[in-house]
């Protein structure tokens, strides 16, 4: 018995050594590839993993002067305060609604646009359209919100001027609680739809052309081809995008909302991000806002894992 164990131990040790050696050899052999990866790895270590330790301040009464090591530990106090805050439900509702509207109306659009672009046979025309629809992505939110204000302002906006000229009364686009979420979604669609087509178009080009030829011989129309060949072929990509998107369901875009927010619409516009900014940066409550941020990230993580599990159960590949 004893010898057996000793033997086993020896055996594993034996096989251990060459393994590390082999790893080392591998690294030596592919040293340039590793070197190439180094900046990326360092980037993740320095800017993603090291700062991650900062979340401990969510459980402290953090004071910048005392630092992370000497600040007082308070456990879940900040979380309790956050969840018992009556504003929590409002923030949660706004965040979820804005996110869901985006998911419902914005998410399918890049797919539709890609399918449409895919049907364009004139090559130069297709290229031009593609470039034009990418463009808004490169404009910052400050500019887009500026344009929105110029267009929709009630006292001097062009849209309202046209409305009045046509005999309608002016409409309070910017200060209307009922349409605020739609306005955000619309801005998002205008800005990001084109950019979203990149991945989908790439996936479409990977579809085997023989499938289309076979379908054509069978007499399938273009619509049929799209429905039975293109869509099933890119289903994987769509699902991966959907899962990744669910992970960001609590991130509704600070800049856009912060810039669009005004006194008349705060009830529907205030989201976790703007709340964290107000409390964390402006009021210096670092611990409290870290707790809120941590909560947000955990929800995102749970959703990604759940969506991934679900995707696998339905026989899809998922992200990992």
């Amino acid at each position: 018995m004893n010898t057996h164990i000793a033997k086993l131990g020896k055996k594993t040790r034996m096989s251990d050594k060459p393994k590390t050696d082999r790893l080392w050899l591998d690294i030596r052999r592919d040293r340039y590839l590793y070197l190439l990866a180094l900046p990326g790895i360092l980037y993740f270590i320095v800017f993603k993993y090291v700062p991650m330790w900062g979340v401990v301040i969510a459980f402290q009464d953090y004071s910048p002067y005392l630092g992370m090591l000497q600040s007082k530990w308070v456990g879940f106090e900040h979380f309790v305060r956050f969840f018992s805050n009556p504003d929590f439900m409002i923030l949660f509702r706004n965040t979820m609604m804005i996110s869901l509207l985006n998911l419902l109306f914005f998410f399918p659009l890049p797919i539709v646009l890609s399918l449409l672009l895919n049907e364009v046979t004139h090559h130069a025309f297709k290229r031009t359209i593609q470039s034009i629809v990418y463009l808004p992505h490169f404009l910052s939110w400050v500019i887009i919100v500026g344009i929105t204000f110029l267009l929709l302002s009630q006292s001097s906006g062009i849209v309202n001027m046209i409305l009045q000229w046509l005999g309608f009364s002016s409409y309070d686009f910017l200060t209307n609680k009922d349409t605020f979420w739609m306005l955000l979604t619309f801005q998002n669609i205008w800005k990001e739809t084109g950019w979203g087509t990149i991945i989908i178009l790439a996936a479409i080009t990977a579809v085997d052309p023989q499938l289309y030829e076979a379908a054509k011989i069978d007499g399938a129309s273009r619509l049929r081809q799209t429905w039975h060949i293109t869509l099933p072929a890119i289903r994987n990509v769509i699902i991966v995008l959907l899962i990744l998107r669910l992970g960001h369901i609590m991130d509704v875009g600070f800049e856009q909302i912060f810039l669009m927010m005004n006194g008349a619409v705060t009830d529907v516009a205030d989201v976790f991000e703007t709340y964290v900014y107000r409390n964390g940066i402006q009021n210096g409550q670092f611990s409290y806002s870290t707790a809120v941020g941590l909560f947000k990230s955990i929800i995102g993580l749970i959703l990604v894992i759940a969506a991934n599990k679900l995707a696998k159960k339905l026989g899809e590949e998922g992200v990992y």
Binding site: D87, T175, A264, T266, D267, N283
Partner: peptide, 23 residues
């Protein structure tokens, strides 16, 4: 007030705007 005051102040200011605008 340093901890919680800003939220109250903001709420009151926003409500003022909304009442003024008839919302």
């Amino acid at each position: 007030d340093l901890k919680l005051g800003a939220d109250y102040t903001k709420k009151m200011a926003d409500m003022k705007t909304q009442v003024i605008m008839g919302k």
